[in-house]
Lab assay of single mutants.
Amino acid sequence: SEEWVEIALRLLELGREANINGTILNLHKEEIEELIRRLLKRI
């Protein structure tokens, strides 16, 4: 399964939302940290 691709796409999506909203992603901080942890486990 290409889970890391899904994770990377989700991170990009959150990054785009952050640019549009001008936020520092506090809302998504925990989700982002969890996604990155899952991503690093696969490398």
Rank of each mutant, 00 (worst) to 15 (best):
E17P: 07
I24W: 12
E31N: 04
G15M: 15
K41Q: 09
I7M: 05
R38W: 13
I24L: 03
E34T: 07
A18R: 03
L35S: 01
I20G: 05
T23C: 15
E13T: 03
L39V: 10
A18N: 03
E30V: 06
V5W: 14
L12F: 05
L9V: 06
L14K: 01
I24C: 15
L14R: 02
E6G: 06
L27W: 13
H28Q: 11
I36Q: 00
L11I: 07
R10M: 10
E30H: 06
T23P: 10
L35T: 01
N26C: 15
R38G: 07
L27I: 12
I43S: 03
N19W: 15
L25D: 09
W4K: 01
N26S: 05
I32T: 01
K29L: 15
R16C: 15
E3A: 10
S1Y: 13
N21T: 13
L27R: 07
E13V: 04
N21G: 08
A18I: 14
G15V: 15
I36W: 03
G15Q: 04
N21F: 15
L11M: 05
L27G: 12
I24D: 13
E31K: 04
E3F: 15
I36C: 08
E33I: 13
G22R: 04
L35I: 05
L27Q: 12
L12Q: 02
E31M: 05
E2N: 14
R10I: 12
I43Q: 03
I20M: 04
E30N: 04
A8P: 00
L14Y: 06
E33G: 04
R10Q: 04
I43M: 06
N19H: 14
L35E: 01
E2F: 14
L12N: 01
G22V: 12
T23L: 14
R10P: 01
E34Y: 08
T23A: 11
E13N: 01
R37T: 04
H28T: 14
R16A: 07
H28G: 06
L11E: 01
L35H: 01
L11F: 07
G22K: 12
E2Y: 13
E17A: 11
W4F: 09
E34V: 06
G15T: 07
L14S: 02
L39F: 06
E33K: 10
N19C: 14
G15L: 15
W4L: 09
R38I: 09
H28Y: 13
E34L: 11
E17F: 07
I32Y: 02
I43P: 03
N19K: 12
E34S: 06
L25I: 12
L40T: 01
A18Q: 04
E2Q: 10
E13D: 05
E30R: 08
L11Q: 00
V5Q: 05
R10G: 06
R16E: 05
L25T: 14
I24H: 10
A18M: 09
L40G: 04
H28L: 15
R42K: 14
S1F: 13
A18K: 03
I43C: 06
I20F: 10
T23W: 12
L9Q: 05
I32H: 00
R10E: 03
I20D: 05
I20A: 06
R42N: 09
R37V: 03
E13Q: 08
N26F: 14
E17S: 09
E2K: 13
L12Y: 03
E6S: 11
V5K: 04
I32Q: 00
L12K: 02
A8E: 03
I24N: 10
T23S: 13
L14V: 06
L40D: 03
L11P: 00
W4Y: 02
E6N: 11
L35C: 08
I43L: 12
I24E: 08
R37C: 11
L12A: 03
L40K: 05
H28S: 14
V5R: 06
A8L: 15
K29G: 12
I20K: 10
R16V: 11
K41M: 10
N21K: 08
G22S: 05
I7E: 01
L40P: 00
W4N: 00
L35P: 00
T23Y: 14
S1C: 15
A18T: 05
R16L: 13
A8S: 03
I7A: 04
L11Y: 03
W4E: 01
L14M: 04
W4H: 01
R16T: 05
E6R: 10
L9R: 07
E6T: 08
L11S: 00
I32V: 09
R10N: 03
W4A: 02
I20S: 08
E34G: 04
G15N: 05
R10H: 11
R38F: 06
